[in-house]
Amino acid sequence: MTDDRTTKAIIFALIAGFIWILWIGHQRSVDARQEYERNQEKERLERLACDRGEYCSNFEAWRRSSGNYYPVKLPTGEYYFYGSKCIDKCEGHVAGYEWAIANEIISYNRCSTDSQSFNDGCETGVISNRVDHGLD
């Protein structure tokens, strides 16, 4: 009688463990799918901005610089940051982007300073923040 209870307990524990492992695997799969979908949506929005000519004038520059935190220098000597052509070496763009990200800015109205490059970087940060917050 004791062996029968022990066997049933072991079988129950194995089945419960198997179900738990399946559930954990499913959760990881769901999380990975959601992350992939967020990245796809972010890329789609960035492409739309590029297509409208708002944030890049050169698709190759956009492609090489989007998703790349550091400015990209093209063979022509031009610099791009997240698809936006920079003045000099993108210091203003990077500063505006970092400010918008650090302060979780989600309104384009907050990106109006005397520095156009700072404003461009800030607007890029706003796009990123809005996508992260599910607003765009």
Score class of each variant (00 low, 15 high):
117 S>T: 08
19 I>G: 12
51 D>G: 10
111 C>R: 15
104 E>I: 00
43 E>Y: 13
49 A>P: 09
104 E>R: 14
114 D>E: 07
3 D>L: 04
32 A>N: 13
44 R>H: 05
69 Y>F: 03
84 S>D: 11
110 R>K: 03
98 E>A: 10
53 G>S: 02
38 R>L: 10
17 G>R: 07
119 N>K: 04
16 A>T: 11
128 S>T: 09
87 I>D: 11
72 V>R: 14
83 G>I: 03
103 N>H: 10
34 Q>V: 08
15 I>V: 12
94 V>L: 05
58 N>Q: 06
125 G>K: 05
115 S>I: 04
34 Q>C: 01
14 L>H: 07
90 C>G: 14
100 A>R: 09
27 Q>S: 05
52 R>G: 07
101 I>H: 06
104 E>K: 15
79 Y>W: 11
82 Y>T: 06
40 Q>D: 03
14 L>I: 10
113 T>H: 08
82 Y>R: 11
69 Y>A: 12
130 R>V: 00
95 A>K: 15
10 I>H: 04
23 W>Y: 09
94 V>W: 10
107 S>H: 03
54 E>R: 15
40 Q>I: 01
109 N>R: 10
123 E>G: 02
30 V>Y: 05
19 I>P: 10
70 Y>T: 06
90 C>F: 11
102 A>V: 00
132 D>N: 06
20 W>K: 08
50 C>S: 13
132 D>Q: 07
22 L>K: 15
6 T>H: 03
121 G>D: 01
36 Y>C: 01
21 I>A: 15
67 G>S: 11
95 A>M: 05
108 Y>H: 14
95 A>R: 15
57 S>Q: 05
63 R>F: 03
53 G>Y: 03
119 N>D: 15
126 V>G: 14
5 R>D: 07
109 N>I: 02
22 L>P: 13
72 V>K: 13
118 F>H: 10
112 S>V: 02
9 A>E: 08
51 D>K: 01
12 F>G: 13
47 R>G: 00
56 C>F: 02
108 Y>N: 11
79 Y>R: 05
90 C>S: 06
59 F>W: 04
73 K>T: 07
116 Q>D: 07
29 S>V: 01
84 S>G: 04
32 A>I: 05
112 S>K: 11
123 E>R: 11
66 S>L: 05
64 R>L: 12
136 D>L: 10
13 A>T: 15
2 T>R: 10
10 I>P: 05
33 R>A: 09
9 A>C: 08
24 I>W: 12
121 G>N: 09
15 I>F: 11
134 G>I: 00
105 I>T: 15
15 I>T: 13
65 S>D: 04
115 S>V: 10
58 N>I: 01
16 A>D: 04
95 A>T: 15
19 I>H: 01
13 A>F: 06
76 T>W: 02
35 E>P: 06
45 L>I: 13
3 D>C: 07
90 C>D: 14
15 I>G: 14
85 K>Q: 07
82 Y>V: 00
19 I>E: 12
127 I>S: 12
20 W>R: 07
122 C>T: 04
5 R>G: 02
69 Y>W: 04
119 N>T: 12
64 R>C: 00
1 M>W: 04
48 L>C: 04
72 V>M: 00
92 G>N: 03
136 D>P: 05
3 D>F: 08
47 R>W: 00
122 C>G: 13
127 I>P: 02
63 R>W: 08
135 L>E: 09
113 T>G: 15
22 L>F: 07
79 Y>E: 01
92 G>Y: 01
117 S>Q: 13
